[in-house]
């Protein structure tokens, strides 16, 4: 039978046990993950099992890092996300955490578009740092993503997206994420994408301001290939701000919808 150790396949005898594999490859490993879940006991292995052996505190060789980073993924997910391209329109409160979640998941290529620069009022919810104030968001986020997972290709476009750019810039994407702030912009992007590519799924966020109940935020299929995340009502306005917890709940709904689409599952 064949087992995979840190993503490389090896032929082993039937009845081989985890402890034998560990002793052979990495006797000092203190994190042992089998098929996405850490185990401490010895167990018999089966054909196709995926085993990761990690020594805490030790930087693995470059060629092993990517494999070890996905050790906690559900088996089979990595190959599919690695082949996917996702475009994100706007990298603020929604777009920056979505990009980070998809980067950690190992999506092969991200296309990011945003014209704006990082300023202090962004930092209550957007995934930037004080020392990035003044930088273009797409450049700052590209740097942050590289530090999280260098195996993701990140293309950046520091532009104010209009119907002129979208058909060209987002053409390579398998899924488009709408993560703008303004309602007009959200509608423009969704309408443009739906009209340009009837078969390309769009995941949009609307209704995530304030600190209302998290569970009011849902993912729903609103029309053909359009998935809406949010409570649909809570808009940003005077007296109702935007804060990390609820914007983050919506952002991660969107990221999980994207993941489900990539894996061929219905997001809602």
């Amino acid at each position: 039978m064949v087992i995979y150790v840190n993503e490389d396949g090896f032929e082993v005898h039937e009845g081989t046990r985890l402890s034998q594999v560990r002793m052979h490859f990495r006797p000092d490993a203190d994190v042992v993950i089998v098929n996405g879940f850490p185990v401490t006991d010895d167990l018999p292995l089966a054909d196709g099992d995926r085993i990761s052996l990690i020594k805490k505190g030790e930087a693995p060789p470059q060629e092993e890092l990517e494999a070890l980073m996905v050790a906690r993924h559900t088996p089979g997910v990595h190959a599919k996300v690695k082949a996917a391209t996702v475009a994100i329109a706007g990298v603020g409160g929604l777009g920056s955490p979505i990009a980070i979640a998809l980067c950690r998941t190992g999506v092969g290529r991200l296309i990011l578009a945003d014209f704006d620069v990082v300023e202090p009022s962004n930092l209550n919810r957007q995934q930037y740092f004080v020392d990035q104030i003044g930088l273009l968001k797409v450049e700052a986020l590209q740097d942050n993503l590289k530090r999280i997972n260098p195996y993701v290709e990140v293309d950046i476009h520091p532009v104010r997206l209009t119907e002129r750019h979208i058909p060209e810039l987002f053409a390579p994407a398998d899924v488009v994420v709408e993560a703008f702030d303004g309602a007009d912009q959200k509608a423009m992007l969704v309408n443009c994408c739906r009209a340009t590519w009837p078969d390309k799924p769009v995941v949009s966020g609307s209704g995530l301001a304030g600190h209302g109940p998290s569970n009011d935020i849902t993912t729903r299929r609103a029309m053909t290939n359009l998935y809406m995340v949010g409570d649909g009502e809570a808009e940003a306005r005077q007296g109702q701000g935007l804060m990390a917890p609820r914007v983050g709940v919506a952002a991660h709904h969107q990221a999980n919808a994207v993941l489900r689409i990539i894996l061929g599952e219905e997001p809602a």
Binding site: G92, D181, A183, M188, A209, A222, R237, L242
Partner: peptide, 24 residues
């Protein structure tokens, strides 16, 4: 968007309408 004002509704039409609110 540019066809909203010229598209007449007909009997049996099925519409899905999404209304966006700001925030992100």
């Amino acid at each position: 968007q540019e066809a909203l004002s010229t598209t007449a509704l007909a009997d049996g039409d099925e519409l899905e309408i999404v209304h966006f609110v700001g925030g992100g």
